[in-house]
Amino acid sequence: MIIDTHLHLVYRDRLTYPWLADVPPLNADFPQALYAQEARRLGISASLHMEVDVTEVDIARETMVIKELASASGSLLVGAIASCRPELPGFPAYLEGVRANPFVRGFRRVLHVVPDDLSEGALFRENLARLAGSGLTFDLCVKPHQIQRAIALVDLVPDVSFVLDHCGVPDIAGGGYDLWKGPVAEIARRSNVTVKLSGIPAYGAENWTLEDLKPYFAHVANCFGFERMVWGSDWPVCTLGGGLSTWLGATHALLSGVSLPEKAGVLSDNARRLWNITPRA
């Protein structure tokens, strides 16, 4: 069983995605049916939808659309990580609404597309602290130079589970290993952080190979261990680096020397525990 913890679905007729205009290969519709056909062939049995940085007025609507898609017969969707804006005064009311919706398992605020000091604001931190006791996770989508700021958030709310997206967004194509390894090792010292094995093919060169990914995988495995690692496709962004089948094939190759219980943890068991996921029949 494989649980995909990082699926993006794009429906441009129903939601607005301002950033897609800057990424022409992704400026298209990526519906559930297109993903599910390939995912089932690969053994993916459940998926968490990851918010797609829709325009602010569409944040609540995105969750509604995804929940509606999850109700379709044969859907792999079992929950959603919703977008949020902790920097805004309206966050407490939004949080209360989300807490009443068990379909939502956590939040993400993409931080590498906003000023570095956004997460240092008093209101942002006050609102983030409201997650304590909610059972909701918070995904950290940051670049290596921002990981120290992410650590400050993790330390602020030690009883909230944080997830470091895309192995900390290393610049694989640019040879950014040395700038990335230290911050990743430091955030891994926090026991309430899980690393997400996702996204890295898109950060490699166009002709990346497994050998390019191995040092990055080895480092996060050494720092986090396999008990604090989950897998995500980052579909359709992964199509920039070869596609879903290519990435899952590379994942199996990276995990080839890992014990069966540890591999099961990365591919399904850890996610099931972290988000209380029950795969659909």
Score class of each variant (00 low, 15 high):
2 I>C: 00
3 I>N: 06
8 H>W: 12
10 V>W: 09
11 Y>P: 09
11 Y>I: 05
11 Y>M: 12
14 R>M: 07
16 T>F: 01
17 Y>I: 03
17 Y>G: 08
17 Y>A: 10
21 A>T: 13
25 P>H: 11
27 N>Q: 11
27 N>G: 05
27 N>W: 08
30 F>C: 10
34 L>N: 01
38 E>P: 01
44 I>V: 15
46 A>R: 07
51 E>L: 09
54 V>K: 02
60 A>R: 15
60 A>S: 13
61 R>L: 15
61 R>Y: 02
62 E>F: 03
62 E>L: 12
63 T>D: 13
67 K>L: 00
69 L>P: 01
70 A>H: 10
72 A>M: 10
81 I>T: 04
85 R>T: 05
87 E>D: 15
87 E>C: 04
91 F>R: 04
91 F>L: 06
99 R>L: 14
100 A>T: 02
100 A>K: 15
106 G>K: 13
109 R>L: 12
110 V>G: 02
111 L>E: 11
113 V>N: 13
113 V>A: 12
116 D>S: 12
116 D>P: 02
118 L>S: 04
120 E>A: 12
122 A>R: 14
128 L>Q: 06
132 A>I: 01
135 G>P: 04
137 T>A: 08
137 T>E: 12
140 L>N: 05
141 C>G: 02
148 Q>W: 02
148 Q>S: 14
149 R>Y: 07
152 A>L: 13
156 L>Y: 03
158 P>I: 03
161 S>M: 11
163 V>T: 02
163 V>F: 06
167 C>T: 14
174 G>K: 11
178 D>A: 15
181 K>A: 15
190 R>M: 00
192 N>P: 01
195 V>D: 00
199 G>M: 05
200 I>Y: 02
206 E>V: 09
209 T>F: 05
212 D>E: 08
214 K>A: 11
215 P>I: 11
215 P>E: 08
217 F>L: 04
221 A>K: 01
221 A>W: 01
224 F>M: 06
225 G>H: 06
226 F>Q: 06
226 F>G: 09
230 V>R: 00
231 W>Y: 05
233 S>K: 03
234 D>M: 06
234 D>V: 06
235 W>R: 08
237 V>C: 09
244 L>W: 14
264 A>Y: 03
265 G>P: 04
265 G>I: 12
271 A>W: 03
272 R>I: 10
281 A>N: 13
